[in-house]
């Protein structure tokens, strides 16, 4: 039982950064922009969040910084793809290269200036990042441990996912915004301000992605700055967007599934003859299968928003 609880808790923690990246990417793709810069924006958020936390010892400021850094990366992407109509794939890949590099660059720079040649988050902030037991609910045996004793990122991520689902599916704005991703021409004709909403969604999405990056820097790495701390989670997030069929609520349980994939290798008994690499491959393999299966079934509702990858120019009807 203890083992199982530990397993679930570990899976949730492994799932959290992916959840943020996925939610951010959903915001992008819902307005028709496939942003392959998730890894880069996460790295930027990781770096900004960590460094601000390191300097100010204030978790709130660190989170704001992580959000802001991710948002700045996304703003760059939005300017190039929405306004200047550059190729989305190429800009996204560039953003990844740029974001990862600048995070490592700044990390290197900060380390070289520190006395101990290593960066460790101060006490205040690490304690703030510890598990928060929700009063009462956290005391329920088993369930309390599995559901209500996590660090702040986990709760925040789930709240963001639910808010996003409400935004997309329960508000007029969400209806309008999703229409942009499906058919910007129709949205434009219906009087929706396409460019404005593209910017808003892409930038907020980038910010959310950035917070996910901060998680990897501040929690996964145990409060010490390491290079390449995002380590490919951004790409798993891109995969999860497909797996979750572009829906924020699906992203919650989807990220849990992917979180399980990530930690499975540590929990499977040694005598099970499945190589570790296969566990790591699972998120991508499963996503690829889902992708092909959906295309065979021609599922329109579970497909990528139709205008993804195509920039919109009103006069090119």
């Amino acid at each position: 039982m203890d083992m199982l609880i530990k397993f679930v808790v570990a899976a949730v923690v492994a799932a959290t950064p992916i959840l943020y990246g996925t939610l951010g990417e959903i915001m992008n793709e819902r307005v028709g922009h496939i942003n392959l810069g998730v890894e880069g924006m996460m790295s930027m958020g990781a770096c900004a969040g960590f460094m601000v936390g390191y300097i100010t010892d204030n978790l709130f400021l660190a989170l704001v910084a992580a959000f802001a850094a991710g948002a700045v990366g996304a703003l760059l992407y939005a300017f190039l793809t929405v306004t200047l109509m550059a190729n989305q794939n190429v800009v996204g890949l560039t953003l990844t290269i740029f974001g990862v590099a600048i995070a490592n660059f700044v990390g290197f720079y900060m380390i070289s200036r520190s006395a101990t040649k290593s960066l460790k988050l101060p006490e205040n902030i690490t304690s703030a990042l510890g598990s928060i037991k929700i009063p009462l609910l956290g005391d329920i045996p088993v369930l309390g441990q599995v559901l209500f004793q996590y660090n702040i990122f986990v709760y925040l991520g789930v709240i963001i996912a639910i808010l996003m689902a409400v935004y997309f599916y329960k508000t007029k704005t969400g209806l309008n915004v999703r229409a942009i991703g499906e058919n910007p021409g129709a949205a434009d004709a219906a009087g929706i301000r396409v460019t404005k909403w593209k910017y808003i969604n892409i930038v907020i999405g980038g910010g959310i992605t950035g917070i996910g990056g901060a998680f990897t820097a501040m929690i996964t790495a145990g409060g010490v700055w390491i290079s390449d701390c995002v380590g490919g989670l951004g790409w798993i997030a891109v995969a999860l967007v497909i797996f979750a069929s572009w829906k924020p609520v699906n992203a919650i349980w989807g990220s849990l599934v992917f979180g399980i994939f990530r930690i499975l290798k540590y929990y499977v008994p040694k005598n099970v003859p499945v190589p570790i690499a296969i566990y790591d491959m699972l998120p991508f393999l499963v996503t690829a299968i889902v992708l092909v299966a959906n295309s065979i079934k021609q599922r329109k509702d579970n497909a990528q928003p139709a205008s993804c990858g195509i920039n919109y120019f009103r006069e090119e009807r």
């Binding site: 490919g232 891109v238 995969a239 497909i242 991508f284 992708l291 092909v292």
Partner: peptide, 9 residues
Amino acid sequence: LFTLMLNYI
């Protein structure tokens, strides 16, 4: 999307 997934596989 498919070619992207195949990279990691």
